[in-house]
Design a protein around this nucleic acid. Structure first.
Lengths: 126, 126
DNA sequence: CTGTATCCCGTCGGATACTG
DNA sequence: CAGTATCCGACGGGATACAG
């Protein structure tokens, strides 16, 4: 890993994994992906019902960025009232196993991590 | 995935993977982990040299949170001038394969993703 | 050498109200 | 039903200066 590579990894635009982490790292993206994986096809308000604590604004923003990255397919049915369906793309399907690995690792280690945090807080307290 | 589970996944404190993503999702954590993996043991300023674009403040903050989570071990040598060494823990070693999977997936798909983003921008432009 | 302390700004995300 | 528009507070992260 030379200096050239490091510079690229420091740059959000040039670093591939930063491009991905900047998406799934934000507050709601992962949850939307997991719900869509399980339910397969959902309308906007159905998603909102499943993830009731998300605001309309953030659900909209999250879905748009997922659509922009080609991870979610959005289908509009031209009718009144409007009907819009969301579903995962093949690209998202290929990412989901890695996400599940992360979820599993987190579940396995979260207790030890929280214990570490408490201990760290104690020993660093003045 | 029932409502109870979803509420937990919406809550940063209760959701295991959010606890992990909130760490590796920030700007510098991943890069620090990868450099430490390759170099094994580094002092503060050596890390700063490898990752020259990080500010002293953020390097300090990033290392502290990694240490708090038990992902990095910090060793102080009581001498003047001070010498402090950082190295990965076994916990971090167990996480790194998943990170490499993410890096690989990102490298594989980043071009297609960027193409999708450009296309999305075009079709949504007024 | 290994950090802290301030100040400051941009972005993320929440609340609320409004629209085709 | 499926969003947008607006306002606003909190927080991540950069620049700079200082300290043990």
């Amino acid at each position: 890993m030379d200096q050239e590579i490091l510079k690229k990894y420091s740059n959000v635009d040039e670093c591939p994994v930063r491009n991905v982490l900047d998406r799934i790292g934000n507050k709601w993206t992962l949850l939307v992906l997991l719900v869509l994986e399980e339910q397969q096809v959902l309308r906007f308000n159905e998603l909102h019902t499943y993830i009731s604590t998300i605001s309309q604004k953030m659900l909209s923003v999250t879905l748009k960025s997922l659509e922009a990255d080609g991870l979610v397919k959005r289908t509009i049915y031209p009718q009144v009232p409007p009907k819009v369906e969301y579903e995962l793309t093949a690209r998202a399907q290929s990412l989901l196993p890695l996400i599940h690995n992360l979820v599993d690792w987190s579940k396995t280690h979260i207790n030890a991590i929280k214990t570490s945090r408490k201990h760290y807080e104690l020993v660093t307290r003045k």
